[in-house]
């Protein structure tokens, strides 16, 4: 049976290490989308809670469509930019983007056209659940940060369920620390 010398074994292990480090980097995708949509989701939920608590006037709600418009504009422009080089992206990254867009689209559709069903906090919870699904999808491909962040988002939904007076704050915190936080970590840890 053939075998390796210690020098060859070291060389092989170093190669494996390099490949795995590169693979982990390729899992860090779309940090900017997570950050932008995480902040939009947080601001919407937070605004509703602050209005309910009487801390800000109700006309402040009119600012929120501007946030949505800005996030959509950013997503379209950045998406186009990435689309130009999508052929060069590994299959896994293309799948991440597909899940990201589908979840955002479904959550947005539910919010825009299901407002009789998803009333009050249900609408915010839809966004949190969509966020958790995306994070868990990334997590099953070996990204531990996504797993932790997905758990944070999901726990916020469960916790909000038992905290009726501060439901909005809890859901907003989940979105901020889980979804936007994942985006921020992905961006700042990029080599």
């Amino acid at each position: 049976m053939e075998s390796l010398s210690p020098a060859q074994a070291r060389e092989h292990i170093e190669m494996v290490d390099r490949i795995l480090t590169r693979s982990e980097r390729s899992l860090r995708v779309g940090g900017e989308f997570f950050l932008v949509w995480g902040l939009v989701g947080t601001s919407v939920t937070l605004a509703f809670q602050l209005i309910i608590d009487g801390r800000i006037p109700s006309w402040a709600l009119w600012v929120l469509p501007l946030f949505f418009a800005a996030a959509i504009l950013f997503s379209v422009l950045r998406g186009r930019q990435l689309g130009k080089c999508s052929e060069g992206l590994p299959l896994i990254q293309r799948e991440f983007f597909a899940v990201l867009w589908i979840s955002l689209g479904v959550a947005f559709f539910a919010d825009a056209f299901g407002f009789h069903i998803f009333t009050t906090w249900a609408s915010s919870a839809v966004w949190n659940i969509a966020a958790a699904i995306v994070l868990f999808f990334i997590a099953v491909h070996g990204n531990r940060r996504a797993l932790v962040c997905g758990i944070i988002v999901l726990v916020s939904v469960a916790a909000a369920n038992f905290l009726p007076t501060i439901t909005g704050y809890v859901l907003a915190a989940g979105m901020l620390f889980g979804y936007a936080g994942f985006g921020l970590i992905s961006l700042t840890s990029r080599d």
Binding site: H12, M15, V16, I19, L20, S23, L27, L91, H141
Partner: peptide, 15 residues
């Protein structure tokens, strides 16, 4: 080394 590299590349990926 090539076969080991291929396996390492596939480790974190679906296809």
């Amino acid at each position: 080394k090539i076969r080991l590299g291929v396996i390492a590349e596939l480790l974190d990926a679906e296809w």
